[in-house]
Design a protein around this nucleic acid. Structure first.
Lengths: 199, 199
DNA sequence: TCCATAACTTGACACCGTCAAGATACGAAA
DNA sequence: TTTCGTATCTTGACGGTGTCAAGTTATGGA
């Protein structure tokens, strides 16, 4: 027997991923308001009520899309981390570069994730992927946390700066990029944070 | 004759404000997805197509709501500025307190403004009100801009920190408030910014 | 008095999310 | 091999939504 209640019919569970793919594509092409269960169904080539079966409701599909987005988001940061040297400051810069690269190359997803959409915050996939992303930040900030200090302070400092920069960047409010592009501009900002690794 | 094409009929232009009021109320009570042209019309006591006449389409109403929100947002910052002493650092803290007070007391509006909603960015009201809000930040940051430096650097630093903090605060991601509440916690963060007023 | 027009209504249309009910196909059981 | 249970998907319906066209009403000016 199969070892669990895994889907066994028709598309063998492939449809769920296809529907998320369709949702991501619609999000990219038409924005959050242009995505609908029925349009996703049409793109995936199934009937209009099929997404409802798999995701319960629109909120369910949006939650699945957000989970996928957070996974990709974490992947970006890990990828840049792996390419950087191990000095704490370099690592901070690396996750920031990953953060900004994701925001720029997946603008719609980035806005969607942080736009206060109605999502099912109890969904295990979504919470696992967003926890994972936050843990990457937490780990990278750890060397800067002073022994008897709250880790949250450093985390909020770094997160706020990079997130704010990303938001201003993708909404076009950062007009004049520094010579050398946006990452050098961000690095310049980062130098204004009072951060020093302990020990 | 009247001096322009000002509204002269029936509700004498009061309806437009009533519809925005209704939209703000719906936004507060049911979130962005719970607001509709038809529901606003019902609350204001007019027919379902009346909002379309005044705002063109849903995007138009959302734009008008965002403009109102930015005005209120600026008012908050100005109010806190007026109560603070004139030392540059105190002024920075004051607009930050206004920023955080607005985010906390008008959470739905705050999320709406910065959620990448489809808004008509060419709308004169919206751009005037968001420009005004940004100008308050700009003016307050001015004393910290070094003579041959880009003002944007300080502005992005301050804005990112307070905006990131606000976002984390209202989405419940800042768990343990410092003793004394959230503003002292923010002030503690602010001290980690490498800011010093020029001569 | 008449008229142009702003302000609003009515009615229609396509699209949407959601639900109930039916169809289908496959693994397991006999 | 036949039967059966169930996961998967379809069909059809419902009320709600944005938007448009056309009609109505009221008012200030000619």
């Amino acid at each position: 027997m199969t070892d669990s209640a895994k889907p066994t019919r028709k598309r063998d569970g492939r449809l769920r991923e296809d529907l998320i793919d369709a949702g991501v594509a619609l999000l990219r092409d038409r924005g959050a308001d242009g995505m609908s269960l029925r349009e996703c169904a049409a793109i995936a080539g199934v009937s209009h009520a099929s997404p409802g079966y798999h995701f319960g409701n629109l909120k369910g599909l949006k939650t699945a899309i957000a989970a996928r987005a957070f996974r990709l988001f974490g992947d970006f940061m890990l990828e840049f981390l792996a390419k950087a040297d191990s000095a704490p400051k370099s690592q901070i810069l690396a996750i920031s570069e990953g953060y900004l690269a994701f925001a720029e190359s997946h603008k719609e997803l980035f806005l969607f994730m942080f736009s206060g959409q109605e999502l099912d915050q109890t969904d295990p996939d979504l919470s696992a992927m967003s926890e994972r992303a936050y843990q990457i930040l937490r780990d990278t900030c750890a060397p800067f946390v002073k022994p008897d200090s709250d880790p949250e302070t450093v985390e909020i400092l770094v997160w706020s700066l990079v997130h704010g920069y990303a938001q201003l960047m993708i909404t076009g409010k950062i007009s004049k990029a520094s010579p050398g592009g946006k990452v050098p501009a961000y690095k310049f900002l980062l130098d204004h944070l009072d951060l020093c690794p302990r020990g």
